[in-house]
Simulated scan of single mutants.
Amino acid sequence: MNTVSSPPAPLASAPQAVAAEPLLTLQGVHTHIGAYHILHGVDLSVPHGQVTLLLGRNGAGKTTTLRTIMGLWKASSGALRFDGHLLSALSTPQIAQLGIAYVPENMGIFADLTVKENLLLAARRARTAAQIDSARLQWIFSLFPAVEKFWNHPAGKLSGGQKQMLAVARAIVEPRRLLIVDEPSKGLAPAIVNNMIDAFAQLKASGVTLLLVEQNLAFARRLGDTVAVMDNGRVVHAGAMAAFSADAELQQRLLGLSI
């Protein structure tokens, strides 16, 4: 496990919430994409300060749920609330300004730009790399040494694991209250997966709430506090990750495999 420096504090303006209270809730959320009805009344609760894993077979609606939260696809009906804010009334930039960051499955980095330029684009308060918060940048370097090592290299030349590190680094270059990541361990070598788990644990310790879509159940078990399982556009199970990890029959029934 990597030894990292203490993370910078989260947003100073963020109110302190009771740990048991959900930071994000979805109630009866339906989403249509063209003629296709993808989400069929999703109910989801993401507790403040915890790591929530969203699991499910391919096509269950996990990515659509994340994109609906971010306003990239608009909910047809239902309510999405983040710390009292009704997300369906906001645009994607406005949702991001609440302190929510999203790392899509394709990572969303700019291949022709350097690692430094990718981070600078995400640091809205900085016009030059020198204006990025130095303590926060050093913390990111401690989480992801490859970001510092390849600082002036084109992002497109990085390995898959290094690109994923850069994508997460971009998402947290400014303080965030909620980090949403789609398939963070997909295609990564075990050593890189361990590094990613360490980084997410540090983010949680700093007060960041995490919502992760994941197919790697071993990854989910090591990191998750709570779990929600989707099937056919609905959440069909929600509860503590520890209990889900211990129930092989439930895993087999819901996912077709076990941890």
Rank of each mutant, 00 (worst) to 15 (best):
169 A>T: 01
8 P>Y: 09
229 V>S: 08
15 P>M: 13
125 R>H: 14
159 S>R: 01
206 S>W: 05
216 N>P: 11
202 Q>G: 01
245 S>W: 07
170 R>V: 01
182 D>R: 06
153 H>M: 13
193 V>F: 12
179 L>R: 03
188 L>K: 04
173 V>E: 02
126 A>I: 13
129 A>C: 14
135 A>H: 13
203 L>K: 00
193 V>Y: 09
148 E>V: 02
200 F>L: 12
146 A>K: 13
226 T>F: 11
41 G>V: 10
201 A>V: 13
13 S>M: 06
66 L>W: 10
142 S>N: 05
212 L>S: 04
257 L>D: 07
36 Y>P: 00
114 T>F: 12
253 R>V: 05
86 L>S: 14
180 I>S: 04
108 G>I: 02
113 L>P: 10
217 L>Q: 08
147 V>G: 06
91 S>K: 12
32 H>K: 14
211 L>M: 10
188 L>P: 04
153 H>F: 09
12 A>G: 06
42 V>Y: 10
216 N>I: 09
129 A>S: 15
181 V>N: 03
256 G>S: 08
72 L>G: 04
154 P>D: 05
227 V>Y: 09
9 A>L: 12
34 G>N: 10
25 T>D: 00
144 F>G: 07
208 V>T: 14
186 K>G: 05
256 G>T: 06
104 P>K: 04
213 V>D: 03
116 K>F: 03
257 L>F: 09
226 T>M: 06
187 G>W: 13
53 L>V: 13
81 R>M: 13
139 W>N: 02
81 R>A: 12
180 I>T: 08
63 T>Y: 10
119 L>F: 01
148 E>K: 15
6 S>Y: 00
72 L>N: 03
102 Y>P: 01
204 K>L: 03
38 I>N: 08
158 L>R: 08
163 K>Y: 06
159 S>F: 05
107 M>L: 15
175 P>G: 09
28 G>P: 02
240 A>W: 06
215 Q>N: 04
4 V>S: 09
233 G>S: 12
119 L>E: 02
146 A>F: 00
70 M>L: 15
81 R>S: 13
245 S>N: 11
158 L>F: 09
